[in-house]
Design a binder for these strands. Structure first.
Lengths: 175, 175
DNA sequence: TGCACCTAGTAGACATATCTGCTAGGTGCA
DNA sequence: TGCACCTAGCAGATATGTCTACTAGGTGCA
């Protein structure tokens, strides 16, 4: 499962609780992966039974205990193995393109509404990605690790811009 | 479920068997949706029980009977309703970007191998999309229906090109 | 005082997706 | 004759993903 590899990757950066992971899935890695809370916890417990992660309970004052998950040596090995393994099959699935494909029966104006909604979403995304990448771009020359994290944001920015250009074309040419 | 809407959309273009649908999911609509055989058949039977499609058994000589699924009026209404409804949430999930994000522990050369594999995949995809779109582009001015189908291909082409440009940048700048 | 929201995690139902293998015949080829 | 592959569809197991709701306390605000 890719989710377990992604979680392993996050634990390799820092030990985390399920709660921490959920926050990251909703923010910093949201542009390439997302996950449901329940599934994060289930996957974490599987990583533990597989010996790829270990739990350290950290007591807190006034807050619930943290079940910190630390990656093990076996976990690091599994992560590296995944990183260099054959590419995961990537099935494109875009509900918006599906609508466009079948939108021939709609009125022209209805199609333009779909397009306008997509534009709004793309612009919003672009803004978020730029806000996230700004601090990185202003900093000093990055390490390879930093560069790669930034590159995934930059990938999102490049595609958001491409989407906007495509939308321009559709708005201009739609018969 | 989006799959049922996509299948409904295909049945609106022409009556089809599960087998026909599977072929189309593997070819002409593959750039924005894919589906497993078993699930196509299950979804088809649900469309029938929901009154959105009807089965017409067509006898063939030397081949198994075709269970042709025809869209009903209720099906067309459901399709239109979906087309103009609120956008489906689109969660980006790209296993390749996930690898790149966590690839900081790899050697530089290993990262470049990942990048090269991605380039190959992007070039292959671009070639396929161009091959599919060529006959459309050479034809006469398209109807809106034709234009929209072509536009989904063009969307894929635009993004494949964007991906290649991004890969150029990574290969050039990777520390 | 009550309400909304935060931290941290658990439980279970349900929805969707994928994989494997089966039936049953037809065609092409070496 | 045997093998590979095509058409057409069915059955069932397993894997993944999503949704709702619950426990249990803490903080901030009006």
């Amino acid at each position: 499962m890719i989710l377990s590899s992604v979680i392993l990757g996050m634990l390799a950066i820092a030990p985390m609780t399920g709660y921490d992971l959920k926050k990251r899935f909703d923010t910093s890695v949201n542009h390439f992966w997302s996950a449901d809370k329940a599934q994060i916890y289930r996957t974490l417990s599987r990583l533990v039974t597989d010996g790829l992660a270990e739990v350290v309970t950290v007591r807190q004052i006034g807050l619930p205990d943290r079940q910190e998950h630390h990656i093990t040596d076996a976990g690091r090995a599994a992560l590296t193995e995944w990183l260099v393994s054959a590419p995961d099959p990537h099935r494109e699935r875009d509900p918006f393109l599906a609508r466009i494909f079948f939108a021939g029966t709609l009125e022209r104006q209805q199609v333009l509404t779909l397009v306008a909604e997509r534009r709004q979403a793309a612009e919003l995304l672009l803004g978020e990605l730029r806000a996230q990448s700004a601090p990185v771009e202003e900093g000093p020359a990055p390490t390879r690790e930093q560069y790669l994290r930034f590159a995934t944001l930059d990938n999102g920015i490049t595609h958001a811009q491409a989407e906007l250009r495509w939308l321009d074309g559709v708005e201009k040419d739609l018969p």
